[in-house]
């Protein structure tokens, strides 16, 4: 008996090879990203596509280095218009969401209006914004705001509108006013919806600002890409897209982090361990 157990113990310890010590799940996003670029590069080599149609990633990175100064400035500009528009959307979305969720009558009256408004493609509003505010940062900020505030409103209002009737009964029987119920139950319970919607809203905000910059601005990644396109500088267009993707992922990660920090109780399965 003792010989057998000694044997298994001895063979178990050194067996952990390099492949087992690596945390593949943590590494996976990086590996897949690298894989995508490798595949892309191979595709370009095999199909021999000219860089004016589909530049290889190596050409795109080369363009990033070559045009680093304008890319850097325009990226910051886009990040600025997006975050300002997004910040306004957060404040306005929270306020309007609370207002709409407040009563059934307001909800019923304003909701169709909101849907109709959201159905309008925001790119169609850019010309109007240009007439009102001229070209530049203001229409970009406003487009980012207009496109990203809707999911915030809907989510906050939903959080408020779905309070369990029993909870409301218990509190109302104690003499709670509408304001009490909103403050004690409605608002805290809509917070997970709110923070969840920020992840959707921030990516939409990038769509808004870039659309507006493309049509009506002399700055920003949208403008940079459209002028690069007119000069057939396709690698630079792709460099712009890559920067947008990087900014989008970074902001999304920030929102996801804020969500986890603020509403840990809603992710109870991970917290109870």
């Amino acid at each position: 008996m003792s010989v057998v157990t000694g044997n298994t113990a001895a063979s178990a310890t050194p067996a952990k090879s390099l492949a087992q010590r690596i945390n593949w799940v943590k590494l996976a996003p990086w590996l897949y990203t690298i894989g995508l670029f490798v595949l892309w590069e191979l595709l370009v080599i095999v199909l021999q596509t000219p860089p004016t149609i589909l530049p290889a990633p190596s050409r795109v990175f080369q363009a990033i280095v070559q045009y680093w100064s304008p890319i850097w400035k325009n990226s910051l500009q886009t990040l600025y218009t997006t975050t300002v528009g997004f910040a306004i959307a957060v404040v306005a979305g929270l306020a309007i969401g609370l207002f709409i969720g407040w009563s059934k009558a307001i909800y019923a009256g304003l909701y169709p209006l909101m849907i109709g408004f959201n159905a309008i493609p925001k790119v169609a509003l850019v010309p109007i914004l240009v007439i009102w505010f001229g070209i530049g940062a203001v229409p970009a900020i406003l487009t980012a705001f207009l496109i990203s505030f809707f999911p915030i409103v809907v989510n906050v209002a939903t959080g408020l509108a779905t309070i369990e009737p029993e909870t409301e009964d218990v509190l109302r029987a104690l003499g709670a006013k509408k304001l009490d119920i909103m403050l004690k139950v409605g608002i805290p319970r809509s917070m997970p919806y709110f923070f969840g919607s920020l992840k959707v809203a921030i990516t939409l905000a990038f769509v808004g600002s870039v659309v507006s910059e493309t049509v009506a601005s002399n700055y920003g990644l949208g403008n940079m890409m459209s002028s690069a396109q007119s000069q057939f500088n396709v690698p630079l267009v792709f460099a712009g897209l890559l920067m947008l993707a990087v900014e989008g992922i970074a902001m999304y990660a920030l929102m996801a982090w804020i969500e986890r920090r603020m509403t840990g109780w809603a992710h109870r399965s991970t917290m109870s361990q």
Binding site: E164, E166, T167, G175
Partner: peptide, 27 residues
């Protein structure tokens, strides 16, 4: 009156103690 339903309707963002103290914030 105090009320209790089949569904305990505890508020998940409050500790059990804070949940129990909730009626006192209302009455």
């Amino acid at each position: 009156v105090g009320m209790a339903f089949q569904n305990p309707t505890m508020l998940p963002w409050r500790t059990t103690l804070d949940n129990i103290l909730l009626p006192l914030e209302i009455v």
